[in-house]
Design a protein around this nucleic acid. Structure first.
Lengths: 323, 323
DNA sequence: GCTTGAAATGTAATCCGTTACATTTTAACT
DNA sequence: AGTTAAAATGTAACGGATTACATTTCAAGC
């Protein structure tokens, strides 16, 4: 038994002839070591739980791709939890870490799934927060300067002469939504434009919500000339509603998104948006989590990923604007 | 130890006062059973490996959603493998089943990831094949009658008077591609139209490939009046290329897709397509796999899921056609 | 109070690969 | 050949929850 183990783990520690014998015996009976036993004994599962609100979101799908890749490179497996943003489901999955079924957890949403327990800090439950910033918890965070990015996009619209710019928001309880709103307000303030609450519309990052919000905009008396959507799906849904109402984009209405999902480039018109390095988000989050698990991290870093303003054809000069 | 285990597993087998004592002790020290130990001892990991070519594909994302839901209901966790259709990666992940790290596997692609080993049949490696049909292997399959569905769509186009219908195919090595091609040919044959190989275009289910194929179509002398794309992404990419060339859809060109992803409804124009019950695919696959694992299956069934032809606005009568 | 059966609790084996430690084999050198 | 150090191999403990089986406790009935 020990010899078999040695042969498989450190062949050089075993004489060539035994090695030969063991190898052929292994091949003969088709022996496959029970890695659960190994994981159990070592106390390292090499599993990482990832809590995703919904894998059906194209942006998250890209993040997961990146995670998967890096995890595989380090010999870790991803346990994917499609939580639908449901705290109970998230807490359930977090128990996998607490019951030694996984070594750590990545949360893509701003919610601490470990009931009251302290996260890492004093060696408890390695966790990394990605995309959204989980406030109040001292765990590593991979994020984007959403506020600055939203400000940049708003500035782009302002530079095109837009003065009434609507904002279709993301999920109500998300810090992302708040941060992007703040950036939008920053840009307006800087341009000396009064913030008008009536230009704020609810959304939840789905195509449908963009469509619905756009219809509300169409019903407004004093319509905006541009709409900044907090993600691309929302923007694509909104564009459809505007087009159905007979509007020309961007001639009658500029629309901007956020994320730069694959569909953004293939819309009609192609969408002006903020590109986020989605795969890199995933890769970084996994790297941080593994470092945390393997105690290579002394403190909880916050990694700010770069964004890029991608100007395509869905945004144009405001009616009557002379660039 | 035994008493603790009993208290937690079958409280009625323990006297009320010990139960009380154990419970408070458990609460006190925050005892969490090591489920790896349980899994190791029981030989049941309650993990399922799922091989997905790419989670970034919206259709697969929906399938995964369904899987996740059903798996969770049965107390199983999904280990997600983003394989990029790479046989080596798939084989690596399949090893998780062979090394007792997972109880079974779902493959979404037509490739047997278990080297030469027999799959189930004689108790080896529970596996279920979903979406694409893995020929030559006797394992449960969840699929769609792709041939009939493709025929139905082609008939729809024929009924609109189209006689030259192009087909943008899926990945070359996929049975899906072959089956949908066969259905397309069935419909043509039935309508007494000669099959023209020059109307076949390569694709790989990405937006980009649809765009590229559409450009090739535009360069053809004797252009088709309709294009049937083997999935929605391809169709959306194609529509963009046609529109960029100044064509009106469906006036100058009808375009049809396959899958009915969320974006299909929010395209311009909304896409005529075949709806597949994606989530249900995932749910069924997981149910079958769990049944297989728990030996409730005597033979390997083939489940054919229903499809639905969804006619939207991207298909219309052929030029000069009188309905 | 004692017997008897049931209920409660304790003990120890088990799952399987790893690894510290013990023992045996091998090779080298006097 | 004999000694010795090194190399190879064997032995057994370990991890933690479960569970068959053994033992103890308890209550009921005479």
């Amino acid at each position: 038994m020990a010899t078999v183990s040695r042969t498989l783990q450190q062949p050089e520690r075993v004489s060539p002839k035994t090695r030969q014998k063991v190898m052929s015996a292994v091949a003969e009976v088709g022996y496959k070591p029970n890695l659960m036993a190994v994981k159990f004994r070592s106390g390292k599962t090499h599993n990482l739980v990832v809590l995703v609100p919904t894998v059906a979101n194209v942006f998250f799908a890209r993040v997961i791709s990146g995670m998967q890749q890096t995890a595989a490179e380090h010999g870790y497996a991803i346990l994917l939890a499609n939580t639908l943003g449901n705290a109970t489901i998230e807490t359930d999955y977090a128990k996998m870490v607490q019951t030694s079924q996984a070594d750590g957890l990545i949360q893509l949403r701003a919610f601490n799934p470990f009931d009251s327990s302290v996260v890492n800090g004093h060696g408890l439950y390695p966790m990394v927060n990605a995309c959204e910033t989980l406030e109040q918890i001292a765990c590593p965070v991979v994020t984007l300067d959403n506020r600055r990015a939203a400000k940049a996009m708003t500035e782009h619209l302002l530079s095109l002469g837009h003065r009434r710019i609507a904002l279709i928001k993301g999920p109500k309880d998300s810090p992302l939504t708040r941060q992007r709103l703040a950036g939008y307000q920053d840009a307006l303030a800087q341009a000396g434009i009064d913030f008008d609450e009536r230009l704020l519309f609810a959304g939840d990052f789905t195509l449908q919500s963009g469509h619905t919000a756009a219809q509300q905009i169409l019903n407004q008396q004093h319509r905006p000339t541009a709409v900044f959507c907090e993600n691309d799906e929302t923007a694509i849904g909104a564009i459809q509603a505007f087009k159905q109402a007979g509007m020309k984009i961007p001639h009658d209405m500029s629309v901007a998104g956020f994320d730069d999902i694959a569909f953004a480039r293939f819309c009609d018109p192609p969408l002006t948006t903020i590109a986020q390095p989605a795969e890199e988000f995933g890769r970084t989050a996994v790297t941080l989590l593994i470092d945390l698990i393997e105690q290579k991290l002394t403190k909880a870093p916050t990694v700010i990923m770069p964004y890029e303003l991608i100007v395509r054809e869905s945004t144009g000069p405001a009616p009557g604007f002379q660039g």
